[in-house]
Nucleic acid binder design. Sequence first.
RNA 1: GGACGGCUAGCUCAGUUGGUUAGAGCGACUGGUUUACACCCAGUAGGUCACAGGUUCGAGUCCUGUGCCGUCCACCA
Length: 910
Amino acid sequence: MEKAYSPKEVEDRLYKKWLDDDNFKAVPKEKKEAYSIVIPPPNVTGVLTMGHVLNNTIQDILARRARQQGKSVLWLPGTDHAGIATQTKVEKAIEKMGRTRESLGREEFHLQACNWRDEHGGIILNQLKKLGCSCDWERNVHTLDEDYSKSVLAAFVKLFKKGYVYRGQRMVNWCPASLTALSDEEVIMKPQSSILYKIKYNILESPGAYLEVCTTRPETILGDVALAIHPEDPRWRNLEGKHVMRPLNPMAIPIVPDKAVDRDFGTGVLKITPAHDKLDFEISQRHDLPIIEILNADGTMNDVAGIDYAGIDRFSARKMIRDKLESEGLLMEEEPYQNNVGFSERADVPIEPRLSEQWFLKYPRVEEAKKVVKEGHIKFFPERWTKTYLHWMDNIQDWCISRQLWWGHRIPVWYRKGKVRTDPENWHVSVSGPSDPENWEQDEDVLDTWASSWLWPLATLGWPDDKEMESKGLNYFYPTSVLVTGPDIIFFWVARMIMAGLEFDGRSYKPEQEIPDYDLPERVPFKHVYFTGIIRDAEGRKMSKSLGNSPDPLDLIDKYGADGLRHGIMSIAPKGQDIRFSEDRIQQGRNFCNKLWNVARFRTMSGAIGENDSISDILARVKPEQIKDEDNAILVRLKSTIDEVENSYQYYEFNTVLHSIYKFFWNDFCDWYIENSKNRMKDEAEKETCLAIQDFCLREILLLLHPFTPFITEELWRLLAFGKDESIQFIPPTAGGEFINILKQAKIEIDPNSLAEIESIRELVTQLRALKADRNLSNNREVEFFFISDETNAALITKSEKSILEAAGAKSLIRIESPKSGLPAIVSSLGSFYLDLASGVNVEEETIRIKKEIEKLEQIIVSIEFKLDNEKFVSNAPPVVVEGARNQLVENQLKLKEARDILQAITEVS
RNA sequence: GGACGGCUAGCUCAGUUGGUUAGAGCGACUGGUUUACACCCAGUAGGUCACAGGUUCGAGUCCUGUGCCGUCCACCA
């Protein structure tokens, strides 16, 4: 074995072997419990980010843990076509070749996009393999696959037939860069520094009189059709029914009363531009006002805006209009103003509210979707996200599902050629299209990407095709066990999947029919949702490509190994809290692997590997009469570690799981047990038992660690010959509940008291080491200690003498009756210990040291006495606590006495 | 405006139902290569648990309020 662990070769070799052996293949087996996870599909053309690393490491841990526990595991991988994002990328690529989307035409563009996807796509899947992800790759699904597309269209058709899908002219969020409508969720509000302009509108009926109107968007004056005032605002009592002159493209427009106007904002007068503002549109509907569009789809002004502005970008036009208003004396005032402007999530440009003809979805099963989460058929981890979820569900709005893109699932609606499209009489809606296609033309739009991914758990398992569902095991694997995702897509994806899951599962309920309670748990798409934290950089900023603050995970794998990366990221991933990334932690992950490697290396150097095939083989090598306190203690700690791990998994507390294992492995096993065994193994009689206990612990450590660091654990599993040809992947760690029994079968009784004894020995050793280190004697192994203690402790010290001498680095421990004068000393729970110093002690320093100790002890004693003197404490606190306090008092009083004796002994010298 | 989260050692964070003297890793400092590991070992220093009240025998932990940081939702032109 090499001195340092080198992951590269091991990882590539083992991953290939796992694939060759079909270890990740999901097979429905009626007798086994199913465990299933569907991957949150990454963008097909995306590359791995730290967010993916976290998210997928968690899924892999869960999948591997389940596999160890003998469950039949499905981890289903796949990718998302990511409509806008991918189309934008492809358009840019085409642009470089001097072409445009339009010049290619729809079919050619689609072909190009597929080529581009096939070329750049799938990179991320290979990156996941590097990370060690145990997905069933044969089941890989892409949202634009033929079967998946059929599911998407089928869902649309079903919802249409139930009346949940409708077409209509509505105010939508329009992205002038991508030239498509967006859902509300795709709009991000950003605070902006704008200018609030106060503009003069002359009142026609009262010459000389005027109203002042505030706006941040003076260019929309061109589309004004009215001014609105609050009907109960006393300032404008006489204005109802009068008119003002529109300051640009002059025309008389009415003043209308509407309660939607906020009297307290600005001047209390609102200009109405129905075509370009949501509220204005609603007001215009109430007052039967005309709608004047002044913008083109791409955000430039149109012909209606007038010859001066046509074709000019909205922001340039704003400046021109501001100047024009000023020159005409209509600009009363302008002041800097902070307001929120909606931006397109993808294109990052201000969106335009725009009136357009779109497809909308009224969400199905909203009430049931709330119920399943409220009643715990779906559990969120951490639980607090349920509140966010329910709040959104309570305020749910219809979903604009059509996109004016070419990359996606084309809406399965056909219109009769030459007829009015708005009349449903002329529609054909089906998955396969009309039988006489020559008489029809298909809707040009595609569906929102989320309107395909909301079917992910169902469609990847073959829904709605009976044969597919059968072969893919929908009945067996659905509902999936857990969904692991970020809270940022709780509305985009999680909520929608829940509704889709409840609506479609093969059985049919009419829309008005409630799903019976007993059926709800069977229809949810997943039972648990684990929300990860968001990974931030050292400054706390969200990692993003544009900031360039995200490290490339492959570089990290290269430097630290996949196991190191996984270990590092999991050690800093608290439950649902944002994560501040630092490469140091990944380095620690690598260091951990190296430590593991070396302890195994030490094991192979300590003696031949014996029968290690199974627990009983290992334990058969133990000679019960050779079991020492150290063995007892490490076994007790191993048991409690297993218990802690089992418990933490219940709550998805991965960093706690890892921390428990880490502490046991590093602090207890390596730093104490192994160090101690070096001495013990010199004795041939003890050696065999000691090695067997080492092997038993190592075996369990590897098993516990395997989900986190799969490669190195598998490698060592083979090197240490645990299980002849069997992979570690399918072996469960010893269950906490079985632990004692398994030892009993090997005739090993573990003594729980030994742990406390060993702990006090370890504590003593630490104090003795410090006693030496403070006098610059760390390296001197020839020192002698004198000690004073009672019979019980003296017996314990004698029993462990060899360990103590070895660990503390000393020649002898000599029991004495009374304090030694002139020697530095410490007070431990096992008695007071004096360091025999040949050269004289620095009395002054020693005095300060021991006085400090005395002071500390006195403080402790005072606080305990104070507590015990309080009758309310004695009568109210649980007896265990009171008893504990009394014991402490006695113990510390004893220590205090010893400390005072030491002080006296020192001062006697001087 | 509403909701949620965070504030504990220089840094990053643990601290599960209130109960010993508040912990870990990193960093700092001191000392160490006797054959597992310097990606290591031993030791030291470092904390008014954001602040103010309250409940309690007892509060980092529960309650109320305040401040700062962050996220989400809504949005007034």
